[in-house]
């Protein structure tokens, strides 16, 4: 699916729509340069789970949020992972991060997912590519591996 967003609000809405179809075990992989709207996208996504305080985990690499899945009326844990700082490490092959990325009892959101090696990509993943068109406009491409609609 392809979208063009021309406001922060629209990007949040697109993320919110995606959030409605997420279930435990899903991994949302975010790709996009600095300023492409990753933070905004994550905020929009988390808001659907009633999580308001979303901050950049660049420094600590992982933040854990306890939210609520309204459609299923159930608790929901979200791992917000940010691999920005790990660039110097080359592609990431496992270790501590793997425990979180392959956790089936949480929804995982990974920023700077291009840092992950192939074998670190969970099967049930949703790729979100954010591209800057100009000041206001962003192209958002969502590729849902779980639906195989590439």
């Amino acid at each position: 699916m392809k979208f063009v967003s021309n406001t922060v609000e629209q990007t949040e809405q697109i993320a919110g729509k995606l959030a409605e179809n997420l279930s435990l075990g899903d991994t949302v992989l975010l790709y996009g340069s600095l300023g492409s709207g990753k933070t905004t996208f994550v905020k929009g996504l988390c808001r659907k789970f009633l999580i308001e305080m979303v901050k950049s985990p660049s420094y600590v690499i992982l933040k854990i949020y306890h939210g609520k899945n309204l459609t299923k009326n159930d608790k929901c844990v979200i791992y917000h992972i940010d691999l920005y700082r790990l660039e110097q490490m080359g592609q990431i092959n496992g270790g501590e991060i793997a425990e979180y990325i392959f956790d089936e009892n949480a929804i995982k959101i990974v920023e700077w997912a291009d840092r992950l090696s192939e074998k670190m990509l969970p099967e049930k993943n949703i790729k979100v590519k954010l591209e800057i068109i100009d000041d206001k406009n962003r192209k958002i491409t969502i590729i849902n591996q779980t639906e195989e609609d590439i």
Binding site: I61, L62, R85, L86, Q88, M89, G90, I92, N93, G94, G95, E96, I97
Partner: peptide, 12 residues
């Protein structure tokens, strides 16, 4: 220094 280390994951 993160830069000096190679391979693996930073937090670990």
């Amino acid at each position: 220094t993160v830069h000096e280390s190679l391979g693996g994951v930073v937090p670990e």
